[in-house]
Design a protein around this nucleic acid. Structure first.
Length: 537
DNA sequence: TTAGGGCTACTT
DNA sequence: AAGTAGCCCTAA
């Protein structure tokens, strides 16, 4: 999830008046933090953390990976983010800057003792001022957002360290900004409102805006959610003065509602318009078939597909057809030489645990009863296991719901092989087994393990996860699964060990035996995985 | 007109 | 809260 800066981010910048003198090192690599760096070091660290020659010019290009340098700081790296992305990720080098210094409570507040927001400015005055470009509006967006607005005084967290609540309460003024933005851009254009420099928000996200609007104007929001016809039917209700609405919500949320009088005070005369966004319409099987047929006929000429009357896709925009094909047939889309849909970075996994699920072999993949019931509307993930399917193991039959077993080992996207398995001083870095492995012998219905060993081989019990992410470089392709081209989990790799003798040649992942070796097991005997008893002992 | 990629409603 | 997918924006 995108990092959301808080007021601490601004407050905890190095104090220009009284620099810290306490030595702080990076918790991961013991490198000195930026706070200790001199002014000369600062840009150097930003641009090139290993460059020790001050006279050397800053390189105009990024260095190639082959340009080996001896003193590279081995910092963990965040996921690659495009330069123009709006996600605000703090470089690891700066990771200490958004944490309170150890002596934060001793430092005076940077805000000059005015934690109370300036609420004296009346909403009417605010409304009178038409949304004209302000000085803040003339700044760049990032600048404007990085610099706390004078209207939104930062919380005095140093003076009251215990009051650093995670709840960022909406002020009247901020709410007025939001409502004016909605009146201007329409409901649904939350990001646009957020980006607009005419309005200032306190570290809000687009979802925050939507949530706040839903609280303040629940009827308008609800009306905007209804289908178009229903919205028209509700039009009289929509223009009804909001202070006469029937109370359906608890009193607490009613207090937040904005009456039409209040809205008028803010300069909002017209009822809120809905976002111009078209309603979502799922694709039918007929449309998908026609689209596939059209693609085979016209290729990526989406306009041609749309205009072909025989395909009956004229109600879809060419771009929509492209979008649908990209989602529905990613492989074919890729084969056409087109870039796949940009990947959304998954949540950072918890690498403290390696969970081995006790998924049964018989309920894997081939069980048609466990698949999500097919609806008329097809989706692009039809070939994937639905979440319900993953939970359809015997553990889910009764009793309190257990957390769904995680069927992949060592998620690929955050593998940091250097430290966790080599640092013996942190037990949380060590792999562990899920307790559900202990249920395995109780399952009498289970077929005998494929190994002849009398001991339980936990790795045989691993349910190979269905690949979810495709990779085009083929660096991690198992056996014959070339077509999917997906990076398998370690579970999938180990489960197929022995059936495919040379699979290791295609992998860049570390061998499991190496991992086990770091746990204290000697590098294996002939590729044998240690038994559960050995692992548990 | 298309490609690339972001936004957001909706579902789980 | 996270994932998915339909819609949207914008550069080329």
């Amino acid at each position: 999830m995108a990092y959301r800066p808080t007021s601490l981010d601004f407050i905890n910048r190095p104090n220009p008046v009284e620099p810290q003198s306490v030595q702080q090192n990076h918790p991961l690599n013991d490198a000195p933090r930026l706070e200790q760096s001199s002014k000369e070091e600062f840009p150097r660290l930003l641009w090139d953390n290993d460059d020790t020659s001050p006279s050397e010019e800053r390189p105009s290009k990024r260095r190639k990976s082959g340009d080996a340098r001896p003193k590279v700081l081995n910092l963990p790296r965040p996921p690659a983010v495009k330069s123009h992305t709006k996600r605000m990720l703090i470089p690891p080098t700066l990771s200490g800057l958004h944490q309170p210094p150890p002596d934060a409570g001793l430092l005076p507040s940077i805000s000059t003792g005015q934690p109370v927001r300036d609420t004296g400015r009346s909403l009417a005055n605010e409304a009178d001022a038409a949304p004209k470009p302000t000085s803040a509006a003339q700044e760049t967006e990032s600048h404007a957002r990085a610099k706390p607005s004078p209207k939104a005084a930062p919380k005095d967290v140093f003076a009251t360290p215990t009051s650093t609540s995670k709840r960022n309460k909406w002020s009247e003024e901020e709410t007025a900004q939001l409502l004016k933005g909605v009146a201007r851009f329409g409901m649904g254009n939350w990001t646009r409102i957020l980006k607009c420099t005419d309005y200032t928000f306190e570290s809000r996200t687009a979802i925050d805006l939507k949530d706040r609007f839903r609280v303040c104007c629940p009827d308008e929001y609800a009306a905007s959610k209804k289908p178009k016809r229903a919205v028209h039917e509700q039009s009289s209700e929509q223009v009804q003065p909001s202070d006469k609405r029937l109370p359906e919500k608890p009193a607490s949320s009613r207090l937040e509602r904005k009456s039409s009088v209040e809205l008028r005070k803010m300069g909002i005369e017209e009822p809120f318009s809905k976002s111009k966004r078209r309603p979502r319409t799922a694709y039918s099987k007929e449309e998908d078939d026609a689209l596939l047929e059209g693609f085979e006929k016209y290729g990526n000429s989406w306009a041609s597909i749309q205009q072909d009357e025989a395909l009956r896709l004229s109600h879809r925009q060419p771009t929509d057809l492209r979008d649908r094909f990209r989602t529905k047939h990613p492989e074919r889309y890729k084969q056409a030489g087109l870039a796949p849909r940009p990947e959304v970075f998954p949540k950072k996994p918890d690498r403290r645990r390696i969970i081995i699920s006790t998924a049964r072999q018989e309920d894997s993949n081939d069980d048609p009863t466990s698949t999500k019931d097919a609806s008329n509307v097809t989706t692009a993930h039809d070939h994937r296991p639905a979440p319900k399917e993953m939970e359809s193991n015997d553990q889910a039959t009764s009793g309190p719901p257990k957390p769904a077993p995680i069927t992949s080992l060592l998620p690929y996207d955050d593998v940091f092989w250097g430290a966790p398995f080599s640092h013996g001083d942190n037990e949380f870095d060590r792999p562990t087994l899920d307790r559900q492995i202990l249920d395995w012998p109780l399952d009498i219905a289970r077929p005998a393990p494929t190994t002849s060993s009398a001991s339980i081989n936990p790795l045989v019990t691993v349910k190979p996860p269905v690949p979810r992410h495709n990779y085009t470089d083929g660096r991690a392709v198992l056996g014959g699964s070339q077509s999917s081209g997906a990076l398998p989990s370690l579970a999938a790799i180990t489960a197929t060990a022995g059936s495919d003798g040379d699979f290791m040649e295609h992998l860049e992942l570390p061998e499991l035996v190496g991992v086990l070796g770091d746990m204290g097991y000697e590098s294996n005997k002939g590729g044998q995985i240690p038994s559960l008893e050995e692992l548990m002992s």
